[in-house]
Design a protein around this nucleic acid. Structure first.
Lengths: 106, 106
DNA sequence: AACATATTTCGAATATTCTAGAATTATCGC
DNA sequence: GCGATAATTCTAGAATATTCGAAATATGTT
């Protein structure tokens, strides 16, 4: 994980709509959610949502899988764990803050 | 930690210059760094840096303390820990990803 | 092939962010 | 108060993000 990539992922999450989408996908778990479901729950126009999803896809925080005409979206946990790991390492590099014990997570 | 606040903090960190500043401050530890030092190391104009620092100050990710004519900047670890905690909770709410064991960190 | 559904891409308006030079404010030492 | 150093605020231009309707694409169904 380099700093440019981390910044891009943080920026992708740093928008209320996109963070809501991501949160929703995490809660949906393995099953994921179709784009249309997300759109309905959020109440945003399809084109607007699609734009936001592209940002999340581009940074690999979210993946998509096509099932017939619908696209299922899923949170990409390893990528988020990588980002969190980077932040933890940055945050606690030299500091006295309590450092969570990291498991074998990527 | 609400979602709006988390998004604001993520956005603040989601810029390469600001993430570099934050990283630099973490590495500086308790001593912190004067604005001028940060400026010199980053090689950006003072006004540009000041703008970025305002964003970090506004989200409380960074604090400042005046010492005579110089302003010492420090990473605000509890705020970062709060953000990381939020991400961990969001990320692992319903998921099968490896969840780091959290200590008593804020 | 025509149709229906799901989603993206296009195009354009508006808003925000980023950048940086110039002017201003803050603090200290003389 | 004056001068020097440190940093911010002002101002403005360029770049990027956000929004969303309309048109286009993708896939399955009849």
């Amino acid at each position: 994980m380099n700093i440019e990539q981390a910044a891009k992922q943080l920026e992708a999450l740093g928008n209320p709509t996109r963070l809501q989408v991501y949160r929703m996908l995490v809660r949906a778990g393995e099953a994921g959610l179709p784009v249309g479901q997300i759109q309905e729950r959020l109440g945003v126009p399809a084109s607007t949502l699609s734009h936001h999803l592209q940002r999340l896809l581009l940074t690999e925080l979210v993946t998509q899988e096509r099932q017939a005409t619908t696209l299922i979206c899923r949170a990409n946990y390893p990528v988020m764990n990588g980002l969190i790991g980077y932040l933890v390492d940055e945050c606690c590099a030299d500091a006295t803050c309590a450092k969570p014990i990291r498991t074998a997570a990527a």
